[in-house]
Design a protein around this nucleic acid. Structure first.
Length: 163
DNA sequence: GCCAACGTTGGC
DNA sequence: GCCAACGTTGGC
């Protein structure tokens, strides 16, 4: 079974967001958004060390009625320090991050695109070709995770498949 | 709201 | 370095 590291290098990713906090429609509306607030080291490392401009992203809605992939986005700027960590008023404040030694980093996403139909987590789970995909693995909670080119292409197929 | 699976923290 | 306690994630 492949681990997350085994997917590297890759130019395809999956990023989770709670739609109540920031949805695919929010991204489409604002155009470009810094992916701040990530407070997990593995997810940070993927953003800081591996995500490059032009990389493609599956946009996943978590903690919602029908969790699943709702669209795509693209990396439009490489990682910069996450300045919400320095803001005491921010829910993402972290006193251990400083301007001199930033602990948290974030890329910027743009080119938000909503699928005509959501590819539900249940659909991903039911698809034989996606059985290795990290997001369907039990207990796997990474909010930024690498995706293989084949998995990415398969999700696009499912997003446009007739029911 | 429940809870399992993880990650982090901190005492020792 | 171990590990118990605690906090978070996220499906259900």
């Amino acid at each position: 079974m492949k681990s997350a590291q085994d997917y590297l290098p890759t130019c395809h990713w999956l990023m989770k967001s709670e739609p109540d906090v920031f949805s695919i429609d929010d991204l489409i509306r604002v155009g470009v958004e810094p992916w701040n607030g990530v407070r997990n080291y593995q997810a940070r490392n993927f953003m800081r060390d591996h995500m490059k401009v032009g990389h493609e992203v599956l946009f996943y809605h978590s903690n919602t009625e029908v969790p699943g992939i709702v669209g795509t986005a693209r990396v439009v700027r490489e990682a910069e320090p996450d300045d919400t960590a320095w803001d005491p008023a921010s829910p993402y404040f972290d006193a251990k991050s400083s301007r001199d030694l930033p602990r948290w980093w974030c890329v910027r996403l743009g080119h938000g695109n909503r699928f005509s139909q959501t590819v539900a987590l249940a659909t991903l789970r039911a698809d034989e070709r996606l059985s290795e995909m990290l997001v369907v693995r039990p207990g796997q909670r990474l909010s930024v995770q690498p995706v293989s080119e084949a998995e990415f292409a398969r999700v696009l197929e499912l997003a446009s498949a007739p029911y």
